[in-house]
Amino acid sequence: MSYRKDPRVDQYINALPPWQQDICHQVRDLVHAADPDVEETIKRTVQPYFVLEGNVCALLAAKDHVNVFLYDGGLSPDPQGIITGGHGNKTGRTVAIREGEPINGQALGDIFRAIIATNRAGGWRKVTSGQ
Score class of each variant (00 low, 15 high):
Pro36His: 05
Gly123Pro: 05
Pro7Asp: 05
Ala15Ile: 00
Gly73Ser: 09
Ser2Ala: 11
Asn119Glu: 04
Gly73Arg: 12
Pro7Cys: 02
Ala117Arg: 11
Gln131Asp: 13
Gln21Cys: 03
Gly105Ala: 12
Ala15Glu: 13
Arg4Gly: 04
Met1Gly: 14
Pro17Tyr: 07
Phe112Thr: 00
Thr94Met: 10
Gly109His: 01
Thr91Trp: 13
Asp29Arg: 14
Asp37Cys: 01
Pro17Gln: 14
Tyr71Phe: 15
Asn89Ser: 13
Ala96His: 12
Asn14Phe: 07
Tyr49Phe: 15
Ala114Asn: 04
Val31Ser: 01
Val27Glu: 04
Leu59Ile: 06
Val31Thr: 05
Val127Met: 07
Gln11His: 12
His87Val: 00
Pro36Leu: 04
Val9Trp: 10
Glu40Thr: 10
Thr118Trp: 00
Ala117Ser: 04
Gly123Val: 07
Pro17Ile: 02
His87Met: 07
Gly73Ile: 12
Ile116Trp: 03
Val68Asn: 05
Ala114Gly: 03
Ile13Thr: 02
Lys63Leu: 07
Glu53Gln: 10
Glu40Phe: 08
Lys90Cys: 01
Gln21Phe: 06
Tyr49Leu: 09
Ala33Asp: 08
Gln11Met: 06
Ala117Cys: 00
Ser129Pro: 13
Leu59Ala: 10
Arg113Trp: 01
Met1Tyr: 08
Ala33Lys: 11
Gln47Phe: 06
Thr41Trp: 04
Asn55Gln: 07
Ala96Lys: 15
Tyr71Val: 05
Val95Asn: 08
Leu70Met: 14
Cys24Phe: 11
Ile115Asp: 02
Arg120Gly: 01
Gly123Lys: 05
Asn104Tyr: 10
Arg125Phe: 01
Asp72Leu: 00
Asp64Ile: 00
Tyr3Asp: 03
Tyr3Thr: 08
Ile83His: 10
Met1Ala: 11
Ile83Val: 15
Pro79Asp: 12
Arg4Gln: 09
Tyr3His: 13
Lys90Ser: 07
